[in-house]
Nucleic acid binder design. Structure first.
Length: 196
DNA sequence: TATTGGATCGCC
DNA sequence: GCGATCCAATAG
């Protein structure tokens, strides 16, 4: 069951944290794929210099200004796609980047799409998980309250969460807007702060 | 129309 | 540490 739209229609940092431990589900042409979300980042409004909407609306970031609960997929570095979920009320550009997953279902498909078999390398990064799930710009704008691509409850209690600066950006490094499940092996980079 | 650099990854 | 690879955004 997809999470309801109200899950996304609130403060972006809250959504970023509450997505941890939940399941990303994609009914792909190759079969059903599932992964537990273990790492996310928040991008919040035109005042956030690292947000794609920092300089106002453009054709690329248009979906960020739309209603919450939709996917924002964009292409970068000439070869990778990034998957975000749109948050907050329509008209306010904000999103959560899905940075890493723990593979749950469709492992052979994920391995084939990635060209590697090592579990730890399948979906442990934002570019990797899109490659593994074959998520590309054809899914940009898709409604996450639909049945093709969505997030659902993971059935676990709230995980212990660590907050750090976001990865791969040059502005907004003062904000601790990246979060991940403490100790999870599928987080994209070696954890600098590890809770016991 | 030209130029620049990126919410990355994997190999050197 | 660096190259791959291409497109959006900005400048001219």
């Amino acid at each position: 069951m997809p999470l309801p739209r109200r899950f996304y229609n609130r403060d972006t940092l809250t959504v970023a944290e509450r997505l941890l431990g939940k399941l990303l589900v994609y009914h792909s042409p190759e079969g059903e794929l599932r992964g537990k979300i273990v790492e996310t980042e928040a991008y919040v409004g035109e005042e956030d210099p690292a947000c794609h909407a920092a300089r106002g609306p453009t054709p690329r970031n248009a979906i960020m200004y739309g209603p919450p609960g939709h996917a924002y997929v964009y292409f970068t570095y000439g070869m990778y796609y990034m998957l975000n979920v749109i948050t907050e009320k329509e008209g306010f550009p904000a999103a959560v980047l899905i940075r890493a997953l723990e593979p749950v279902k469709g492992i052979p498909i994920l391995q084939r799409n990635r060209g590697v078999t090592d579990f730890l390398k399948l979906t442990s990064g934002p570019g990797k998980l899109c490659q593994a799930f074959r998520i590309d710009s054809s899914l940009n704008g898709i409604d996450l309250c639909g049945s093709r691509l969505f997030v659902e409850e993971g059935g676990e209690k709230r995980p212990k969460v660590v907050w750090t600066p976001r990865i791969g950006i040059s502005a907004g490094l003062d904000k601790l807007w990246r979060c991940y499940i403490a100790g999870n092996r599928f987080v994209s980079k070696t954890n600098t702060v590890q809770l016991k």
